[in-house]
């Protein structure tokens, strides 16, 4: 039993056949070929599959592919339309990552926060990324980079 869905992924339109059991995470990774959302637990605990779904973060492992019909998905690959976002730049410069496996999810959660709260407190940043487990960094360097990115503000669009 196949369903055909139409969705936008990082601004591009896709028409895809999916089976009812396939998670959105599987569809994105295997049928669209977008690999930045990672498989960490497949039960909503770790946040490594975080994506923006109509602009809001969700866990792609908990959504079904069929549900995404008519929706818009943005992943790490799609947020920097004009090169890197300030947040990505600061995370690179400040070495705010280690193995990097959590980074795609962390960036999207922090990106969402900065959209709504351009001048967050450290506590707000911690809250915003609290659903993204990182076993490596101890989080402090991530929080510092988000605050620094907020201080500088979004990149001027050229």
């Amino acid at each position: 039993m196949k369903h055909t869905i139409e969705m936008k992924v990082n601004g591009e339109a896709w028409v895809i056949d999916v089976s009812p059991a396939e998670s959105l995470l599987e569809v994105l990774r295997e049928k669209v070929g977008v690999k930045s959302p990672k498989i960490g637990c497949e039960r909503g605990d770790c946040g490594s599959c975080t994506i923006l779904y109509d602009g809001k973060t969700i866990r792609a492992c908990l959504a079904l592919g069929v549900e995404a019909d008519g929706h818009e998905v943005t992943t790490l690959e799609g947020i920097g339309h004009d090169g890197l976002t300030t947040l990505q730049e600061k995370m690179v410069e400040m070495s705010s990552f280690q193995c990097g496996f959590c980074a795609p999810g962390v960036v999207l959660s922090a990106h969402e926060l900065l959209q709504h709260e351009p001048h967050p407190t450290a506590g707000q940043v911690q809250e915003a990324i609290s659903g993204n487990l990182c076993r490596c960094t101890g989080y402090d360097s991530i929080v510092d980079a988000v605050l620094e990115a907020a201080r500088i503000g979004p990149r001027a669009v050229s």
């Binding site: 690999k35 990672k38 790490l76 990505q88 070495s95 990552f97």
Partner: peptide, 23 residues
Amino acid sequence: RGTPRIDGLDKLTGAAEYVDDMD
């Protein structure tokens, strides 16, 4: 020196490939 990591762009753009990402 605190030289920025050389794997930064790989990991912050989604370019970094882990085994499960390989086709």
